[in-house]
Design a protein around this nucleic acid. Structure first.
Lengths: 225, 225
DNA sequence: TTAAATTGATTGAGCGCTCGGTCAGTTTAA
DNA sequence: TTAAACTGACCGAGCGCTCAATCAATTTAA
């Protein structure tokens, strides 16, 4: 996992002076922790294991981090940064075509599919974080939803979607976000019946409405009165 | 919280002979644990605290339970039993009227609203459980979704809904379940903008389609060709 | 009738161990 | 030479779980 710089870098204090070293070592630490946390969860992972997996000593770990909670926070931020980065990147593909929204959903769901384990991890361990940081992580969730809010707003404004009020837009954006997450935490079951492409198709139909019309009818909005 | 008997009673072994006592004591234990787990999470709650809150000694706790994990499992099962019970009860109100499905969604969402903390708890701590039991808890989730699958199937059969294939029904049922849960784990944000009744309204419109038509159009299914 | 024996529930001090965190000392590199 | 980076043995608080001892209730037996 690439470690995209995030807020966290500044918030979590380190004893080490060399900024570049902080960046590199934390990358090792995060990668190691992500692997272990996904595998055995935060609580069953020891700091020793994290250090070992990262290829450094226990003592050194604490030069780059003040507590085990810090590691979790770094992990959550890193995952969010990665998701955000991928979504932003993927959404470029989606724009331009006729069904912008469908394209966005598709790309977002694909990101969810590929980052299932990571998204699930954040969901399950956020609670553990100290309040101050939990808040940060939750705000990250909003930020992602905000991307969809903005997109929906624009589409509604340009008339590509029927008029929707603020509340509706807000909620649809949340729905899209969460239905993406649903694939991650019900995958153990959904995976038996759906390939990700099936899932995308049926959910897109659900959100946009099939050709027969739907809650949001991107294609029929303009010609209808 | 009422303790509705569940599978768990048989699966978790106890040293105590008296069945009635097992029932009563475990009820105390579960109530205490639920309170503490919601408050500070499973890992930060000690067995001593559970015992104290339940009004028994640490030693006695272990006469009714073999491990701290057992307590978590009992809690998860109890919560599920409660949700299931409430949903089953609430859904009776929903049947009979014209918009059966809307009624079901409404009642289910109300249950989610009132049991937010509990549902959230199960989501966040399921991972901690030993595999054998984690599986059980996940299957419980399916069971609930199954209620909606069945209802949707019947409505589709009687023509109250447009024809939907198995996959679509399955997914819509999952969506309903998860959008109920969404209210529980995004409440910290959604609660600022929506009262539960607003949420129900907008989500129902989203799922069923507004009066202008939607993905599932309960009212227009019969008169259309 | 009642004292003795038995059963099963209950207590809580404390055992054993884990694991987050520290620090005295060593290595590296400029 | 020396400051920064790094090591890993060590510390000790905390916690899950146990078990010897007690108590209450019931059964037995004289």
């Amino acid at each position: 996992m690439k470690n995209h710089k995030s807020q966290a870098t500044k918030d979590v204090p380190s004893q080490v002076k060399n900024q570049d070293l902080i960046y590199r070592r934390r990358m090792q630490i995060i990668d190691a922790a992500v692997k272990l946390f996904i595998d055995k969860g935060f609580h069953k992972t020891t700091t020793r294991e994290i250090a070992r997996e990262a290829g450094i000593s226990t003592g050194l770990l604490y030069e780059y981090v003040a507590s085990k909670d810090d590691v979790l926070y770094l992990v959550c931020e890193a995952i969010h940064a990665e998701v955000e980065h991928r979504v932003a990147h993927a959404l470029k593909k989606a724009t331009g075509g006729r069904d912008v929204l469908a394209g966005m959903i598709r790309e977002y769901f694909l990101v969810c599919d590929r980052m299932s384990d990571h998204i699930l991890l954040v969901y399950q361990e956020t609670r553990t974080l100290p309040p101050r940081w939990r808040k940060r992580v939750l705000e990250n969730e909003l930020k992602l939803t905000g991307v969809f809010v903005k997109a929906l707003q624009e589409l509604a404004d340009t008339g590509d979607l029927p008029p929707l009020d603020k509340q509706e837009i807000e909620l649809i954006a949340h729905n899209i976000t969460v239905l993406g997450h649903m694939w991650t935490f019900r995958r153990w079951f959904l995976g038996r019946h759906f390939k990700i492409e099936d899932y995308i198709k049926v959910q897109t139909d659900f959100i946009l409405g099939k050709s027969t019309g739907g809650y949001i009818r991107a294609d029929s909005a303009k010609e209808e009165s």
